[in-house]
Computed example of a mutant assay.
Amino acid sequence: MAMTMKVYEVDREGHTRIVREETEVVPLEQPEASHQFPVCECPECKTTAR
């Protein structure tokens, strides 16, 4: 089953702006085991103690 997705942003006054036009996307058959974000690898985070 296909789905559609459109990305837009709304400003403080309620005006919308389309960031990406509507497009068809295919959902995953099996969700990934974890949806946690990976550890940040930016220079600032690499030098900061975790």
Score class of each variant (00 low, 15 high):
residue 44 E to D: 10
residue 22 E to R: 15
residue 19 V to G: 06
residue 3 M to C: 14
residue 44 E to P: 07
residue 31 P to R: 03
residue 14 G to V: 00
residue 34 S to A: 12
residue 38 P to L: 01
residue 35 H to P: 03
residue 22 E to L: 14
residue 10 V to C: 09
residue 48 T to H: 06
residue 31 P to Y: 00
residue 30 Q to R: 09
residue 22 E to Q: 15
residue 44 E to K: 13
residue 13 E to L: 12
residue 32 E to S: 09
residue 42 C to A: 03
residue 15 H to L: 14
residue 10 V to W: 01
residue 15 H to I: 09
residue 21 E to K: 12
residue 24 E to I: 14
residue 31 P to V: 02
residue 1 M to S: 07
residue 8 Y to N: 09
residue 12 R to E: 12
residue 2 A to K: 13
residue 2 A to M: 11
residue 45 C to T: 02
residue 6 K to S: 07
residue 31 P to A: 04
residue 37 F to K: 02
residue 11 D to C: 04
residue 16 T to F: 02
residue 9 E to L: 00
residue 17 R to A: 15
residue 28 L to Q: 08
residue 6 K to P: 03
residue 29 E to A: 13
residue 29 E to M: 12
residue 27 P to L: 10
residue 9 E to I: 00
residue 4 T to I: 14
residue 1 M to L: 05
residue 49 A to P: 08
residue 43 P to H: 06
residue 47 T to C: 04
residue 38 P to C: 00
residue 48 T to K: 03
residue 21 E to H: 11
residue 6 K to H: 08
residue 1 M to C: 12
residue 31 P to G: 04
residue 1 M to N: 10
residue 35 H to I: 03
residue 7 V to M: 05
residue 41 E to N: 09
residue 29 E to V: 10
residue 32 E to G: 07
residue 31 P to K: 00
residue 6 K to L: 12
residue 42 C to R: 05
residue 8 Y to Q: 12
residue 20 R to N: 13
residue 33 A to D: 13
residue 38 P to K: 01
residue 49 A to C: 07
residue 50 R to K: 08
residue 48 T to I: 03
residue 32 E to V: 08
residue 37 F to C: 03
residue 39 V to C: 06
residue 33 A to W: 03
residue 28 L to C: 07
residue 14 G to W: 00
residue 45 C to G: 00
residue 34 S to G: 08
residue 36 Q to P: 00
residue 18 I to Q: 07
residue 9 E to Q: 14
residue 44 E to I: 10
residue 42 C to M: 03
residue 29 E to L: 12
residue 28 L to H: 12
residue 20 R to S: 15
residue 17 R to E: 10
residue 44 E to Y: 08
residue 3 M to D: 14
